[in-house]
Design a protein around this nucleic acid. Structure first.
Length: 806
RNA sequence: GCCGCUGUGGCGGAAUUGGCAGACGCGCUGGACUCAAAAUCCAGUUCCCUUUACCGGGAGUGUGGGUUCGACCCCCACCGGCGGCACCA
């Protein structure tokens, strides 16, 4: 009977489900292995071929680990809050819940059709009140620790994005919203903010111990952007109690300061601006206000600014320096004020050149007629710093500032606090009540979850608030004393639910706690986490932050959530371009599963190339994988649907070497997730098996076991010919006999001047001298050496002989 | 501009520690089977030169240099591709 994927895959998916094959016990004497996929956002588009790639890799690891005696946690769930559902709901006048649930059903069905060994009893859904109860609970813990606070801050306001919403810094790309590409303006607004900066150092330092791709670690380091320097106080001339604090990484250049620059939004600007400069300053600030971030950065590299009329006093030499405002200084970094040293900073140089401000060299070197000199050198014109190099001068300057109470050593971060509120409906409500008497309280823990009201009214409130503001009987609350208050109408960003979902899988039905501490202790950390690199800074940084807070609270037992992280590469279209509707190169996994089966899709995606790399889809390629599965089938099963007669308990030894090699290589390659080379080794084995008369049962069973992590349905079916109505999932993983790998003779390479001239088959334990003699006697070697003088002979036992001659 | 990754046949890719470059698959070519085709099985397939064929020779892992008996692998410079950051003081 030929291989029939349709029948086989349905049969085994039903078997696994009926027999709870992959139900994971909460505890076990076995060692644990936690293999996690980044859970998907269930979009209306359904699954694309990129999803099964990472999922297959974690599934293969899970299946192998089970067979190796591990208790494996391998769950799946849905990151189901988010804007697309709300946008669609708004358009159609429905509540996003129904639409979201439908999408989840489609996703679940698609995922199930691929035969992953998830424990479906542990499925989580971020939009389920019994789940977001705990998302809100975590928020309350953050609030109690002072890590969640409301503040009037400059936010990224996208007025054209769904009636206006605020987005996080991380969600702004090129001055536009990451989703939809709407322009972003910086405006002050009252927002919820999470104090991720309090964890900046730990988020940075703990990266070192993680088994993550270097590129992701590097991106997080850059994002956190730790920079060491000094804060320096500049007095303002004529304003006795006013000081301007600047941050600089180059306190050694203090004698080269020729002016100060404040961000246009800096709060002292009005106070210090002189009457004759007021009009110019006001006009400039007004002009800046109406610019989006994009216009302030990308579109405009040309420096602009205005003099305030005020002067600051340089603490090291008492010199008066003009104070300017300019938008090249960012209000949101450091103190929003900088000391400008045009001689040694390219940005200041550009500004000083444009506005004819003095450029005073304090380090020897470079050519100041052309550009700023940022290199190291001997300090000059710098009082007590003269003669020092950069490093010495920096520390001397900091010492001086500290002694004279004019500054101090300071560390600054590029990382900002996490703007956490969204003016949206479809998210977790922030469980806070603002009472009329000015008090702000949390919704008591025993009243969580604070559920979203059911409504079809998702139109923007028109006030910049979320649609929840329109729902009077939800917003208005009265306490037992008759005091009136209003609920916070903000909801949490999509990153909230995904920052801790891996904890909930461990104990998904617990209604007393986020998860049982003993279970967390057994299962954490996640051993393997696979997902796309696009989450390098957003999700992965937020999840680490929450995890550390929970660690400090004693809720979780580990400092870091994810021990090993792997980013699967992108699957490109057959034209080597990113799959997209407009390019018409999108492959629908449903069609592939229907035509070739899930096993073929899984096998092909793992065979395409290294997991981490991007690689193009090929229809011929998937067909090749399909044909190979059929070839395996034919090797074992005859036309009458029986095991072939060649499958026998007799072992004539012909497959000994290749079988043991295959067990070794496949086991090692799977462990390193080099699935493509593991598959190629199994292909070699099958090619050899086709050439021999007897197929020993032991080897065939071992081979099917090795096949099962990648192509579980066909493996189960083949296994059932050997062991009826049993699952292969918990069979012990095959082992190899190392003595079968070595042969009595080996082939060595004979080279002259590093070029291969001949080969020789020799005893594996041959002595160096004997090997050299054989090499010198070889006919081809003689010919190559003929007429030359042998200078040297290198003999590598068991490998080669290289004769150096000229 | 800065940081990270990457570059190997017609294509996807392999080469674990510096030791036979191109495993395995796709495609292609030839053969077997067939009335024929498809499917399947077997063989060949880096390029160039030489040869009826066998045999033989040379070049070759983005480019140029270096270290080494020996380099896809290590070092330096450069070029191309992908990704990230981008006035962060």
């Amino acid at each position: 009977m030929p291989y029939d994927h349709t029948k086989i895959e349905k049969k085994w998916q039903k078997f696994w489900s009926k027999n709870d094959t992959f139900k994971t016990p909460d505890f076990s004497d076995k060692p644990k292995y936690y293999a996690l996929d980044m859970f998907p956002y269930p979009s209306g588009q359904g699954l694309h071929v990129g999803h099964p790639e990472g999922y297959t890799a974690t599934d293969a690891m899970s299946r192998m680990k089970r067979m190796q005696g591990y208790n494996v946690l391998h769950p799946m769930g849905w990151d189901a809050f988010g804007l697309p559902a709300e946008q669609y709901a708004l358009k159609t006048g429905h509540n996003p819940k129904g639409f979201t649930d439908q999408n989840i059903d489609v996703f679940r069905k698609q995922v199930k059709s691929l035969g992953f060994s998830y424990d479906w009893d542990r499925e989580v859904n971020t939009t389920d009140p019994s789940y977001y109860k705990w998302t809100q609970w975590i928020f309350e813990q953050l609030y109690k620790r002072g890590l969640a606070y409301e503040d009037e801050i400059m936010v990224n306001w996208a007025p054209d994005f769904m009636g206006g919403t605020v987005v996080a810094n991380e969600e702004v790309v090129d001055g536009k919203t990451e989703r939809g590409g709407y322009p972003v303006y910086r405006v002050p607004m009252r927002q919820w903010v999470l104090k991720i900066t309090a964890y900046a150092d730990r988020l940075l330092d703990d990266l070192d111990d993680l088994d993550w791709p270097e590129s992701i670690k590097e991106q997080q380091r850059n994002w956190i952007g730790r920079s060491e320097g000094a804060s320096v106080q500049f007095a303002v001339d004529g304003h006795k109690d006013t000081k301007i604090e600047v941050f600089t990484t180059r306190p050694d250049t203090m004698f080269g300061v020729s002016y100060l620059v404040l961000a246009p939004e800096y709060d002292l600007v009005d106070q210090i601006t002189t009457p004759d400069q007021k009009a110019a300053v006001d006009a400039y600030r007004k002009q800046i206000e109406s610019k989006s971030d994009l216009e302030r950065t990308d579109l405009n590299k040309d420096k602009t600014g205005v003099f305030t009329g005020a002067y600051g006093i340089n603490p090291v030499n008492g010199e008066q320096v003009p104070i300017w405002i300019a938008d090249y200084v960012l209000a949101s970094y450091g103190t929003g004020a900088v000391m400008a040293v045009p001689a040694h900073d390219p940005r200041d140089y550009e500004f000083a050149t444009k506005f004819s401000l003095p450029i005073k060299p304090v380090i020897e070197g470079g050519d100041l007629d052309k550009e700023a000199f940022t290199g190291d050198g001997t300090h000059i014109n710098s009082g007590f710093l003269n003669g020092m190099d950069k490093k010495t001068a920096i520390s001397a300057a900091i010492d001086w500032l500290t002694e004279h109470d004019a500054g101090a050593k300071k560390v600054n971060y590029r990382l900002r606090d996490w703007i956490f509120s969204r003016q949206r409906y479809w998210g977790e409500p922030i469980p806070v009540i603002h009472w009329d008497d000015g008090e702000t309280t949390l919704v008591p823990e025993d009243q969580l979850p604070l559920t979203l009201p059911d409504t079809d009214q998702l139109e923007p409130s028109g006030t910049g608030e979320s649609p929840l503001a329109n729902i009077d009987d939800w917003v208005n609350v009265t306490d037992e004393n008759g005091r009136h208050g209003k609920r916070d109408t903000n909801t949490m960003p999509q990153w909230a639910g995904s920052s801790w979902y891996f904890l909930r899988y461990i104990d998904p039905h617990n209604d007393k706690a986020l998860a049982d501490p003993e279970k967390l202790k057994y299962w954490l950390p996640v051993d393997l986490y696979i997902g796309g690199a696009e989450h390098a800074v957003l999700h992965l940084l937020y999840a680490r932050f929450w995890h550390k807070v929970l660690y400090d609270l004693g809720v979780v037992p580990t400092k870091e959530p994810f021990h090993k992280l792997v980013n699967q590469g992108m699957i490109l279209g057959d034209n080597h371009e990113k799959m997209s509707k407009s390019k018409g190169n999108v492959i629908n996994p449903d069609e592939i599963v229907e035509k070739y089966g899930a096993d073929t899709l899984r096998l092909y995606e793992m065979f395409m190339g290294p997991l981490e790399e991007s690689k193009p889809w090929s229809e011929d390629g998937i067909n090749g994988s399909y044909k190979w599965i059929q070839r395996v089938w034919r090797l074992l099963i005859d036309e009458n649907n029986h095991l072939r007669d060649r499958v026998t308990t007799i072992n004539d030894g012909k497959l000994d070497k290749v079988y043991n090699e295959t067990v070794k290589k496949v086991t090692e390659d799977y462990s390193r997730m080099h699935f493509n080379t593991a598959i190629s080794q199994m292909m070699v084995f099958v090619n050899e098996a086709h050439k021999v008369d007897d197929l020993p049962v032991e080897y065939m069973e071992g081979f099917i076991k090795m096949l099962s992590p990648l192509v579980p349905h066909v493996a189960e079916e083949l296994w059932s010919y050997f062991h009826e109505s049993d699952t292969i999932s918990y069979q012990p993983w095959p082992t190899y006999d190392a003595s079968k790998l070595v042969e009595a003779t080996i082939e060595v390479v004979l080279q002259v001047n590093g070029k291969v001239k001949s080969h020789a088959t020799v005893d594996k334990d041959i002595s160096k001298d004997d090997l050299e003699k054989i090499a010198m006697a070889d006919e081809h070697m003689q010919k190559a050496i003929d007429g030359k003088t042998v200078r040297k002979t290198i003999v590598v036992p068991g490998k080669l002989v290289n004769v150096v001659a000229n």
